[in-house]
Computed example of a mutant assay.
Amino acid sequence: MAVAALPPKRAPQKQNAWKAYSDWANEHRKWLFAAPAMIFVAVLIAFPLGWTLYLSLTDASGSVRAKSEFIGLENYADVLTDTDRFWPAVLRTFVFTAVALTVQLVLGMAIALLLWRPFKGEKWVRVAILLPLVATPVAVGMMWRLIFDPNIGFANQLLGFVGIGPQPWLSGQYSALPTVIFIDIWQWTPMVVIILLAGLTSLSDEPDEAARIDGATAWQRFRFITVPLLMPTIIVAILLRSIDALKTFDLLYATKGRGGGSFHEVETLNVYAYGLSFDYNDYGVSSTVLIIFFLIIVAVMFVLTRRRKEVQK
């Protein structure tokens, strides 16, 4: 008598669901491991940005607990038509960033090229070059404030030895901004050196050697071989330093104090927004300035990131 074949046992539904979830988790494990940190960072960024955006649409002032009214884009209209403080602060911000970044790139490239080839004592030279990065910007600002003091500062004493009269440096209306730019260059050029030197050491020697055999001069090899190959690294250095220079606050506040000086000679957007918040308690207008400043930084990041992708193609 034939025995009927038993149907195969079906795996439990829970086991199949667990296996499907396990396979999905294994396939997306890199996102799952990074998700907690990404969510945490997103919340940290989203909440302050959202609250600042809300304040920019109100007339909040006096105290953060005081009642405020929704006024829409009135603060933005007032800020964007302010030619006394806002637009001069925008101009100083871009002048500070452009001049500091340009000089830092030129000096950084020159120093990186000097350190590119090994030489005796190069380790000590590299340590000496990196020393400005050790101190905080506030400490650097206070140090240079003493050096540039018009009465007891070492800078004027040094000029006196060569027959030049004392200079106002940080206390002058027209010399303060170039002076703080110099201080920023002194502190942050080593960072550009590190980035460019890392890029130089990763380059292959074959293109340079081939050009040398063909009779190319040192300048031609640098211009047509080294710079094009190093361009992605240069864009990274520009991206990092431009964003950092745009946001500079501690150095300016340590050297000039409130308002960027008596004549607002070094008042950038960061210093201006700080003064509106903590000196005048005008939180609505200060939030408006910060939102506009945030959009400027995002635009700069977008342009430089897009440029970097074009270079890498």
Rank of each mutant, 00 (worst) to 15 (best):
Q15F: 09
E69A: 15
G153V: 04
P207R: 00
L146K: 15
F40E: 00
L203M: 15
L115G: 02
W186R: 03
V99K: 09
P48F: 00
I181H: 07
N156I: 02
W188C: 08
A20W: 07
L230W: 05
V298I: 15
P207G: 05
V311P: 03
S286I: 02
V79T: 11
V192F: 06
P207E: 03
K120E: 12
N75K: 14
P232D: 01
Y21R: 15
G163S: 10
K247A: 05
Q312L: 15
G284C: 04
L252N: 02
A216Y: 11
A34G: 00
A66D: 15
I297A: 10
A218P: 06
Q157E: 09
K9G: 11
I291S: 12
G72I: 04
Y274L: 03
R306I: 13
G108C: 06
A35H: 02
I225D: 04
V289C: 09
G215I: 08
L229W: 08
S262R: 11
T248S: 12
F294H: 11
Y283G: 02
L170G: 04
T248Y: 09
S286H: 03
I238D: 02
L240K: 00
D208L: 13
V90A: 11
A135H: 03
A60Q: 14
A218L: 13
T217Q: 07
L240T: 05
A66L: 09
L197A: 12
T248H: 07
S22F: 10
P228K: 05
L251A: 00
A2S: 14
R258L: 07
T97D: 09
P232N: 02
F154G: 03
K247N: 07
A100F: 03
G163C: 05
F47G: 03
E74Y: 14
I297W: 04
V300R: 05
L304R: 12
M109A: 07
F70M: 12
M109P: 03
I234G: 07
N281E: 14
N270F: 07
A2Y: 12
E267T: 05
E209H: 13
D279P: 09
A25R: 09
M142R: 12
Y280K: 12
S61F: 05
E310S: 13
S61E: 10
A66T: 03
G284T: 05
F249Y: 13
S68W: 08
S204W: 06
V41W: 09
V300H: 08
P48A: 01
D244E: 11
S63G: 04
L229K: 07
I164F: 12
A155I: 00
V134S: 02
